[in-house]
Design a protein around this nucleic acid. Structure first.
Length: 230
DNA sequence: TCATTAAATTGTT
DNA sequence: AACAATTTAATGA
C-alpha cells in the first residue's frame, strides 16, 4: 500500500461510512513517513492522533530505568493503534519505534471522537479490535509460560499476521531475527534455531532480513499436540 | 556497470 | 557474549 486512500480502503471500519464521512476522514488525516529506527512517539507524549500503518512495521516497546528494552507487540501494515490512550485521554504509555521505513496515517483526536460519536459501526470495529488485542495479550502470557522456545517464536510471528488487526499484510515481513527475539522473548541465537526448525517443517521460508509465511495456521498451532479423535 | 567498502544481519560456538 | 561469514547498500570510478 502506498497512499492514505489505500489504507482506508483496506480498513474494515471505513466500509460503513458515507461518502461525506469518508471525505472528512480523508481530508483531516495526514500522512507521515518515518525512517527505520526512528521514534514514532515516546512514552509520556500527549496523545493527539489515532495512528494507522500504510506500510512498514512498528513496535511498541518499553525501556526500564536501567536501559533494558522489552517489545510488547509489532503493528503491521493495515493496522491502527493508540485508541486505548485516546479513549482514556492519557499520555502515551509506551514508546513506538519504526522497525523499517514506515508510512503512517495520523487521524487527529477530534476526528476520532467525531467518528466515535456518530458512527455505530466504528464503535463496533473498536470493540472487535480491542477484544482481538486482549486475546493476543492473554495468549502471549500463556505462550511465554507454557511453551518451549520454538513454539513461542512461531506464535509471535503468527501474531504479526493477524488478519483482524492487520488486514493488509502480505505473505512476507521484513524483520530481523534480533527483533523477532525481542517480540517473542527469546535470544537472537535461539530465534535463529527456531526459524530453521519452522522452515524445515514447511511453515515459513527464512530470507535475509525477513520471512515469508507458507502456513499461517501451522504456525499458530505449532507446539500444540493434535487432539486425538474420539 | 562494476569494484570497493561499510554496515547490517545471520550462523555458529 | 563473541566471532566469522554472508548479504545488502552506498560510493565512486
Amino acid at each position: 500500500m502506498e497512499t492514505l486512500t489505500d489504507l482506508l480502503e483496506a480498513s474494515l471500519w471505513t466500509k460503513s461510512l458515507s461518502a461525506e464521512q469518508l471525505a472528512r476522514v480523508t481530508a483531516e488525516t495526514t500522512v507521515k513517513d518515518v525512517a527505520a529506527g526512528a521514534f514514532v512517539c515516546r512514552k509520556g507524549d500527549p496523545v493527539e492522533n489515532w495512528i494507522g500503518i500504510v506500510h512498514g512495521l512498528v513496535k511498541m516497546t518499553s525501556v526500564s530505568p536501567e536501559g533494558k528494552t522489552t517489545t510488547f507487540l509489532g503493528v503491521a501494515g493495515g493496522g491502527w493503534f493508540g485508541e486505548g490512550s485516546l479513549l482514556k485521554d492519557q499520555t502515551r504509555k509506551y514508546d513506538i519505534v519504526a522497525l523499517r521505513a514506515t508510512r503512517l496515517a495520523l487521524m487527529p483526536k477530534p476526528t476520532f471522537d467525531w467518528l466515535l460519536d456518530t458512527d455505530i459501526a466504528f464503535n463496533r470495529f473498536l470493540l472487535v479490535q480491542l477484544n482481538e488485542r486482549l486475546a493476543q495479550f492473554i495468549a502471549m502470557v500463556e505462550n511465554q509460560r507454557l511453551l518451549e522456545p520454538d513454539a513461542r517464536v512461531a506464535r509471535s510471528i503468527a501474531a504479526l499476521f493477524n488478519p483482524v488487526l492487520y488486514p493488509a499484510m502480505g505473505p512476507e515481513v521484513q524483520i530481523s531475527q534480533e527483533e523477532i527475539g525481542y517480540l517473542s522473548g527469546v535470544s537472537r541465537q535461539r530465534v535463529n534455531q527456531a526459524l530453521h526448525v519452522l522452515q524445515v517443517a514447511g511453515l515459513l521460508e527464512v530470507n535475509y532480513g525477513g520471512l515469508r509465511i507458507h502456513d499461517l495456521e501451522g504456525l499458530r498451532a505449532f507446539g500444540t499436540p493434535a487432539r486425538p479423535e474420539r
